[in-house]
């Protein structure tokens, strides 16, 4: 697992793009990073007359839906983008991946990251954070998941009871909330 090394020479010729978050923080990021966010990319394509490289850091792209804390995490994720989001073949490898995913904050943070990645149309990031949230709810109780997602159970009690009986083995060994 090799992390993409950071650009050794940050002041190199690669163009920079400035992103402005909902709390008015400015982030100067490399073009390659910014272009991973399709929403940002689209912004440029919509204004095709202007050359991205030439305009460089003079361009400020407003991201009114993304908070600075979230964007910082997303950018740090971009810098060490994992090779693949695919489920690993062996158990140890998958556990390593899970640990890696766990580093990106609380489940609440993950929801923010997912929302931001969705808004920015950032496919790999969305997959990654979805997976991280899936890790979190994986072995939780149905009640916990309902609470977490703000969902009210709408099955008739007898329907739910019947289902739980039929698939009793799927409800065994639930983690504590």
């Amino acid at each position: 697992m090799s992390n993409t090394s950071e650009n050794p020479n940050p002041s190199s010729s690669s163009a920079k793009i400035t992103l402005k978050t909902s709390d008015n923080e400015l982030f100067e990021v490399e073009e390659a990073v910014a272009m991973k966010f399709c929403t940002v990319k689209q912004y440029f394509e919509d204004e095709k007359d202007n050359d991205v490289a030439a305009r460089g850091s003079s361009t400020v792209i407003p991201l009114p839906n993304v908070h600075s804390a979230v964007l910082a995490r997303l950018i740090s994720y971009c810098k060490k983008l994992p090779q693949s989001n695919a489920v690993a073949d062996n158990h140890e490898e998958e556990e390593t991946k899970k640990k890696e995913r766990k580093q990106y904050g609380t489940p609440g943070d993950l929801v923010d990251l997912i929302s931001a990645a969705n808004y920015l149309d950032f496919k790999e990031g969305l997959e990654f954070f979805n997976q991280a949230l899936a890790d979190h709810i994986q072995n939780k109780s149905v009640e916990y998941v309902r609470k977490f997602f703000g969902i009210k159970g709408d099955f008739e009690p007898h329907e739910e009871e019947k289902y739980r009986e039929e698939y009793a083995w799927a409800f065994e060994g639930v983690d504590e909330d």
């Binding site: 890790d135 309902r146 997602f149 099955f155 799927a170």
Partner: peptide, 16 residues
């Protein structure tokens, strides 16, 4: 992203 067992469990979260 959930393994099958947990998908089966999550089926009873709600009808949706």
């Amino acid at each position: 992203w959930l393994p099958v067992t947990y998908v089966l469990r999550m089926k009873c979260v709600c009808k949706q």
